[in-house]
């Protein structure tokens, strides 16, 4: 427990150090931070926009973050802050251009060598889960993905989505219940 906390503190310290160097124009530090966080930021943009604009806005997220790094609270981890910027940029684009986020067909990333029956069953479950996710409101869906896929804590999800901690807990509770009932219908 203590070792994990010490590791988290070291990570935080390293992130802050990299971010400060990136702000001063150190391109190696900027590259390291982009490589570390590009996946969650890009995935968030894709989930919100579901369009090729996602790449553009994910890149813009990193640029805005390090140009305005003086606004960053150094006591907090970097990822929730990046996700907040990405989410705001995406919502601004949706509002400005009236871009409607359309569901897109995504392939299922399943174990490459399962039995055909198991593969079919897993694909079916994942498809149902995707449909159930699409039926969720934006907040609960994003909270579910940030918790289960990106492994963010409740507190960091609250910071990223700019809602109180209690709202995150409610969203997660309701979202999970909906998803589980959707999965049980298949069983």
């Amino acid at each position: 427990m203590a070792a994990a906390e010490a590791r988290d503190a070291n990570d935080l310290h390293a992130e802050r150090d990299l971010a400060r160097r990136a702000r001063r124009g150190d391109s190696a530090a900027f590259d390291q931070l982009v490589l570390r966080f590009q996946h969650p930021v890009y995935r968030l943009c894709r989930r919100i926009l579901r369009s090729p604009h996602a790449e553009d806005l994910a890149q813009e997220t990193f640029v805005r973050a390090f140009v305005h790094f003086d606004r960053f609270d150094p006591e907090r981890p970097l990822l929730p802050w990046l996700l907040t910027i990405a989410r705001r940029l995406c919502l601004d684009l949706l509002r400005r251009d009236k871009v409607m986020a359309k569901p897109e067909d995504t392939p299922v990333a399943v174990d490459p060598a399962p039995s055909p029956e198991r593969h079919a069953s897993l694909s079916e479950q994942v498809s149902r889960l995707e449909r159930a996710l699409a039926d969720l409101d934006d907040g609960p869906r994003e909270a579910i993905m940030l918790f289960h896929v990106e492994e963010l804590s409740y507190r960091d999800i609250a910071a990223a989505l700019e809602v109180p901690l209690g709202t995150v807990m409610t969203w997660l509770h309701r979202g999970r219940a909906q998803l589980k009932s959707a999965l049980e219908e298949t069983a």
Binding site: F30, Y42, T106
Partner: peptide, 22 residues
């Protein structure tokens, strides 16, 4: 199951694009 939903990956030139914009 949520992780089995294939998440799109950033394109290979994502870093170069971000660096240029920065």
């Amino acid at each position: 199951l949520l992780r089995a939903i294939a998440a799109p990956e950033p394109p290979p030139d994502f870093l170069a694009g971000a660096r240029r914009r920065y």
